[in-house]
Computed example of a mutant assay.
Amino acid sequence: MRPDVFTHRASRPHEPLRTFHPRRAPLGRDRTDALERLFDRWGFSVDDDRVPPPRTPDGLLDTAALFGRTAPLVVEIGSGMGDATAAMAAADPDRDWLAVEAHLPGVAALLLLVERAGLTNVRVAHGDALRLLRTAVAPGSLDAVHAFFPDPWPKARHHKRRLVQPAHVALLRDRLRVGGTLHVATDWADYAAQMVDVLTADPDLAGGAVERPAHRPVTRFEQRGLDLGHEVTDVVVRRVR
């Protein structure tokens, strides 16, 4: 699939504002090659009907066709360059992992990691994760949702774009099975406080701030923040009803 067919559809008036910065970055030869060779096999587009996911007769994402099996599903919102996703999926082969990333270099980087590690339980979606969850993922169908280091939108006037806010959390919780987990992390102190406040205020979720679980690896992005003295907060909540 040629990189120039990938598009971002503009947000519609009735849809929430994007929670990520649309940005472009050069792909380079290896990542361009990865998209051309691997995307049609292990990826799909949220926004472009020319590279759609498999769907059930009622229009929902057909995860059995996508992965070739039926297994608990983890959705990674904003998988970045994919190193954490690949490591966690390799360590947890009994679950399937759908990484949703808006930026092509990250999509391509994860595809390369999947190929090199021989992973069979990872698929990669390019586009807006919230749109995918709203339009194509059945309620109660996810085992876990992860969002590690989402865009912090540090300016107060942009806080409405943050991923962790009540309306978005309601969507994420609805897509989880009862007992499923939502795990978020940030190195922005005020965003961490907002995450804790919003997630613990939802009566159908239980949990709070925790030490970094051993299964979540430290990413290169995270390590740069730690080297600068940033404090990382993980928040894990479980759907209780």
Results as ranks from 00 to 15, higher is better:
V5H: 09
R9F: 02
R12M: 11
E15W: 11
P16L: 07
P22N: 10
P26E: 09
L27S: 03
G28W: 03
R29N: 04
R31Y: 05
D33R: 15
L35G: 04
W42H: 14
G43S: 12
D48K: 03
P53A: 15
P53M: 15
T56A: 12
D58M: 06
L66Y: 11
A71K: 11
P72K: 05
E76F: 10
G78V: 02
M81P: 00
D83C: 02
A84T: 14
A86I: 09
A87L: 14
A91W: 11
A91H: 11
D92N: 15
D96Q: 13
L104S: 06
L112H: 01
E115G: 07
E115I: 10
E115H: 11
R116F: 00
R123S: 09
V124A: 10
L132R: 05
R134E: 15
R134M: 07
G140F: 09
S141F: 05
K160A: 14
A167M: 05
R173I: 01
R177S: 13
G179V: 10
L182E: 03
A185V: 01
A185G: 05
D190H: 02
P203V: 13
A206K: 05
R216Q: 08
V218W: 02
F221L: 06
F221M: 04
G229K: 09
H230E: 06
D234I: 00
R239Y: 04
R241P: 00
